[in-house]
Design a binder for these strands. Structure first.
Length: 708
RNA sequence: GCGGAUGUGGUGAAAUUGGUAUACACGCCAGACUUAGGAUCUGGUGCUUUACGGCGUGGAGGUUCGAGUCCUCUCAUCCGCACCA
């Protein structure tokens, strides 16, 4: 890999190179984790997690794609187990708001994906009080439960409430067998399904035989459990308004539950705006306008409160595998969960380990997990979970900005990090839109708050390069459809390979690999090299524009067109394909003339422009021809090159191109029109002109209609 | 279902942001030089028509002197989210 990058001529600061699995890197990562634990940003909890049987590990929500593992595509299962979580929800608002700073600097698609993933919604949170009878049934263990809604305006239309199968009340009913056996079995089955599986099954639910009291009307409302109520969101319980919610409507229809319309409008379920009805004092008001008043009413009566909820889940960072930094905690019989002492870091992975593919290698290691408690010194057990490797990639840019001489003493040098970062231009695949790019944003903000740097956003500008496809599929080793760049380089050289790839398409676009055009790229470079004999000046020559013939002038225009274009391409658009095309045009135009100074100037500039694209050829020729070893100088665009002796104007009639005229740059509008009518006489016969338009330097348009 | 993106020659793609549509390159055709060419060079190459011309940026409308570009509707493909109450 390193060899390949070198051959292709990529530049890295070799002194700053490091591996994220190096214990010296691990050490600081573990320190951050301990600091986060101290700030209560990291916690350990036992919940239902995504488990990949193939990888033998837990996965974060972001790492599950359509119910499958992002690495191996194996179907993810649910499992109840303890794990460590980073409180990313605490930063949800900032992560959302700061997306605005990235507008126009990041692709809008990525911004949208992050926004949707964070999924902020505002609404009302309130408690449903259980009826006395229901409280008794639940053995006095529950008085009420909380629900969340974004539609407080439909509160008078509630006809039932639904709990997730995992809701504590549902669980209680199951445990104490307060439902009939068949129902219990079915609910347990549902509990074992993933969200994706539940969605596929269609709606299913059961009457739990308990009731709650409507907080405003005092009516009794039946409580059901339903497979579409998510345990992980909004407390795992909802109020149901079948008249104005598609899901509730479907469910209510299926189980013959009552439906009460409270917004006037069309066919049910009606989810658009309208006037309220059957809504007590709010009747006849616009539904969009009463949301706030209803929340206020709940707050006044101390029944509930306005709240914000996020779809984003906290980041589960526990992994049960060998690679990744060990989570630096110790389980002590008397002290409980204890963070390792900073001076004992790093807690390195053992090297004599057996990777069997079965179970956690650290767990299975005979001695590694035995340690003493950092608090009391008693025998204790080391945590065997390791950190998600996305933690490693969340701060490597901060490490890279830190002077290697300081790597032993500090993880991140604040001054240097502040100086170098955020990254001016970051390049990566769209597949990390809500993985690495979200985690790194979060981690950067946490490290900022822990005092390690003053950076708000890790990556200032982002380019998501398109995937390279082969036979319509993403190129990958596992699919065996990769193209070996070595072969291409061996045959044509690294510069041709680079030029070819950049010329094929703009980098944002995905590219179907087809190497038939390699020849073209090679031909261009060869031609460029062949023309070195044309150079007669050792420096950028000064040229008297007036002494040149037309072809030479045209060549200069093309050369300076390319130079002009390069600024935009290298700083904004990254449309290297158009810059390469401009260089090709310039070379073609140079070939049509024979002024030595123009040739020298042209090649000087073309080599300068191609340096980042074909560095080997460009630097070698620049050195040989012009004694230039550093191609970073700024060449100014000579505007006089673009001043033309005459201007070509297109003559259009009724918007259709008919002919063209040559005029002096000083020609007046009247002169131009006169000339246009003269050359266009053929098309004007029997016509009367009703409008004349002259666009300077561009065209003339004559609007005509048949004479009466 | 919701959200986003993209549709231009045989192919990869350009178009100064409302002003000559198809630059540049691949491919193809013809020619030149060659013992030879998978090397190099020259010319041609959107469709249609004998020609003048007509048509042409997924499709249908609209705005405008003028639309690949702006607006409305529509079709197709791709991507993301997917019961988030």
């Amino acid at each position: 890999m390193r060899q390949e990058l070198n051959t292709l001529g990529f530049s890295f600061s070799k002194t700053r190179e490091f591996a994220t699995c190096d214990p010296l890197y691990t050490k600081w990562e573990q320190e951050f984790i301990i600091k986060m634990f101290e700030q209560k940003l990291l916690y350990r909890e036992s919940t239902t997690v995504n488990w990949c049987q193939e990888c033998h590990t837990v996965l974060a929500n972001e790492q599950v794609e359509e119910g499958c593992c992002w690495r191996c595509s194996n179907e993810v299962q649910l499992k109840e187990m303890p794990g460590y979580y980073l409180d990313i929800i605490k930063y949800a608002d900032e992560l959302l708001v700061d997306l605005e700073q990235l507008e126009d600097k990041w692709p809008s698609q990525v911004l949208t994906m992050q926004k949707n993933w964070i999924g902020k919604s505002q609404g009302l949170e309130f408690e449903f009080e259980l009826t006395q009878e229901s409280k008794d049934k639940l053995g006095g263990n529950f008085d009420k439960y909380t629900v969340f809604t974004t539609r407080p305006d439909t509160i008078y239309g509630v006809t039932y409430s639904a709990l997730a199968p995992e809701h504590p009340i549902t669980k209680y009913l199951l445990k104490h067998e307060l439902l009939d056996t068949q129902t219990i079995e079915r609910i347990v089955d549902i509990s074992n399904m993933t969200e994706v599986e539940r969605a596929k099954e269609g709606k299913e639910g059961y009457d739990l035989g308990i009731e709650v009291i409507h907080p405003l009307t005092g009516e009794n409302i039946p409580v059901w459990t339903a497979n579409f109520v998510l345990a992980s969101y909004g407390g795992g319980a909802v109020m149901s308004v079948p008249a104005h919610d598609v899901r509730d409507f479907e469910f209510a229809t299926q189980y013959n539950l009552p439906i009460k319309q409270v917004i006037s409008g069309g066919e049910l379920p009606y989810t658009d705006e309208g006037l309220l009805e059957n809504s007590d004092i709010f009747t006849n008001e616009k539904n969009t306008q009463v949301k706030a008043s209803i929340i206020e009413l709940f707050e006044e009566k101390k029944l509930g409160r306005g709240t914000t909820n996020f779809k984003l889940r906290n980041w589960g960072v526990s992994r049960q595998r060998y690679w990744g930094a060990p989570i630096p905690f110790v389980h002590c019989k008397s002290c409980g969960l204890v963070a390792e002492k900073i001076e004992n870091l790093p807690i390195a992975l053992p090297e004599n380990v057996e990777i069997t593919g079965e179970g956690n290698p650290l767990e299975n290691h005979p001695t590694w997990k035995n340690c003493s408690c950092p608090e009391c010194g008693a025998d204790a057990i080391r945590e065997t979970d390791t950190l998600d490797t996305f933690v490693q990639s969340s701060w490597y840019q901060l490490r890279y900005a830190t002077n290697p001489k300081k790597w032993n003493e500090e993880g991140i040098n604040k001054e240097e990090a502040n100086y170098w970062l955020g990254v001016d231009q970051y390049i990566g695949g769209i597949e990390h839109a809500i993985l690495h790019l979200l985690y790194a944003r979060f981690f950067t903000k946490v490290l900022r708050d822990l005092g390690y740097c003053d950076i708000d956003e890790p990556f200032e500008r982002l380019l998501t390069q398109g995937m390279v496809l082969k036979d319509g599929a993403k190129m990958s080793k596992s699919k065996g459809n990769t193209v070996d760049p070595d072969k291409l380089i061996a045959q044509y050289g690294a510069d041709t390979a680079r030029l070819f790839v950049l010329f094929a398409a703009p980098p944002q676009k995905e590219l179907e690999w087809n190497d038939s055009a390699v020849e073209g790229a090679f031909r261009f470079l060869k031609k460029l090299y062949d023309r070195k004999d044309k150079v007669s000046h050792r420096t950028l020559p000064s040229i008297d524009q007036n002494s040149l013939d037309g072809k030479a002038k045209e060549a200069r225009v093309k050369v300076y067109d390319a130079l002009k274009k390069s600024t935009d391409v290298y700083t904004k658009t990254f449309a290297f394909n158009t810059l390469i095309a401009a260089c090709m045009e310039a070379l073609n135009a140079l070939d049509k003339q024979d002024d030595k100074a123009v040739w020298s100037e042209g090649l000087y500039i073309i080599l300068h422009l191609l340096e980042p694209i074909a560095p080997h050829l460009a630097t070698e020729l620049s050195q040989e021809l012009f004694d230039r070893t550093n191609l970073q100088e700024i060449i100014t665009v000579k505007e006089e090159v673009f001043v033309q002796d005459s201007i070509t104007l297109i003559v259009t009639i009724n918007g259709k191109k008919r002919t063209q005229i040559e005029v002096l740059p000083t020609a007046s509008k009247e002169e131009i029109l006169l000339m246009a009518k003269d050359v266009g006489a053929k098309w004007l016969e029997g016509m009367s002109i009703i409008k004349e338009i002259v666009v300077p330097n561009k065209l003339v348009n004559l609007v005509v209609k048949p004479s009466a």
